[in-house]
Amino acid sequence: MLVLRSVSKTYPGAERPALAGVSLDLAAGRTLALTGESGSGKSTLLHLAAGLDAPDAGEIEVDGRRVDGASDAARAALRRDAIGLVFQQFNLIPSLDVGANLAFQARLAGRFDPGWQSELTARLGLAGLERRYPEALSGGQQQRVAIGRALAGRPRLILADEPTGNLDEPTGDAVLALFLDLVRATGAALLLVTHSERLAGLLDARVHLRAGRLG
């Protein structure tokens, strides 16, 4: 589902590469934890996989489609159709209410399913909050909306960047458990970036990044 071959990336002005020849293979329906220290290149890898940024060298494939070298429009289409993204900062659209945020990407991809939306809303514990705006939600609630948005279009690949990093441990654990449950229910592959070895242990496999290289 996600294949990286010898991917490198150096940011302008940086002394060393953020990623140096990283290769990785994530099969459909599998979950993979990506761990590492701060600045080890975890988020960079995730951004490159999502087509949010372009690598200096190497190849990236998502669902059999090449990401590196693709046009902005092609990368946008790939994100829309095949990828669900979850960020540490939630990144909800502040001017849309919970219901509209949840449905946003699915409607964008033309795959909005009211039944699945209702089920997601209920399983994420967001029932009754649909008309509220993000600013009126707690951090845990906002992250559940972000997870729901990523899953609503049933993407084949979920990329999550420390989705519980902004939450306290009990809330984070509860949200992650729900997240993994839902990911497995949709059959999507998951690449999850985390600091926590404990959380990494909950996934099918894990890889560790150190100074831009897989260790």
Binding site: L52, D72, A73, N91, P94, S95, Q105
Partner: peptide, 16 residues
């Protein structure tokens, strides 16, 4: 800008 970034992350092209 946060919204624009999220739109891009959700697959909206810069052109559109």
């Amino acid at each position: 800008k946060p919204m624009l970034r999220t739109l891009r992350a959700c697959g909206v092209s810069a052109r559109l």
